[in-house]
Design a protein around this nucleic acid. Structure first.
Lengths: 131, 131
DNA sequence: TAGAAAACAATAATGATTACTAATTTTACT
DNA sequence: AGTAAAATTAGTAATCATTATTGTTTTCTA
């Protein structure tokens, strides 16, 4: 066995599972520190990377310059609010056919894709209208 | 008029137009410096940002931690090779219908989307097979 | 329970990008 | 053309997210 148990990793994973948003490493760090005060930020990063390499969580790069993490590894797409920056799960039909569309005139091999949508989330939409 | 002419900005734009790949700020800097030796990296960054804000170029965030820039602002999608890191234009059918698919069960406003495909480019595909 | 392997905390280093500042360029108006 | 205000620049410092390093502690296997 190459991967040893670690209390820190368990706490990180457990915390991430409680969240429906998609926290950054720093937010994970700040929260986990409340139950595990002397955990190190490096440990958070290392374990988030480990967990995503094992496929237990997903690392999201939504183009805001910070990595987000998601305990839900089932295939789904994300929305990023241009106003508040929140990352939200989209409940939408499967769009895997865009992979086939991309393969049509392409000479290499396409393994997958990443798609995210942007605009204003429900909250920010209401705030802007009323102002 | 708020935006003044600048020789540096013109050179940057002109250089970007000659490239079919999608150079990073650093690559733009290294190349532009050959015709404009004392240009500053900060100037390159500032003008790339300005140009993309004016809609003259596009800033691409393909999840490799570095911004790429594209003089082609027409809507099209990109492929990122997991092996060599190259960013390649995809000649594929329009997939804007994924925007409608995303809007269906969403309460906010969706302005757009960004879709990236990844895998092995033609070059790297051949190299791996022959080894 | 001993000893090797992995993980840790703390901290330093890296790499991309942005911010600052004093000097230079551009532009609008004489 | 001359000039003054505003934008831009080069050079450099600062920031921010992330990764690497190191000496110590934990985990696991025999």
């Amino acid at each position: 066995m190459a991967l040893k148990y670690s209390r820190q990793r368990e706490v990180i994973k457990t915390f991430l599972c409680t969240r429906k948003d998609h926290p950054t490493a720093d937010i994970v760090y700040m929260n986990v520190r409340q139950q595990y005060p002397n955990i190190s930020l490096g440990t958070v990063y290392r374990n988030l990377t480990l967990l995503s390499e094992m496929g237990e969580i997903t690392r999201l790069r939504v183009g805001d310059g910070v990595d987000h993490f998601d305990a839900d590894t089932s295939p789904h797409n994300h929305f990023v609010c241009s106003e508040c920056g929140n990352v939200i799960d989209l409940k939408m039909e499967n769009i895997d056919y865009i992979k086939e569309a991309a393969e049509k005139n392409f000479s290499g091999r396409i393994d997958g894709y990443s798609a995210y949508f942007y605009g204003l989330c429900g909250n920010c939409c209401g705030k802007l209208q009323s102002s």
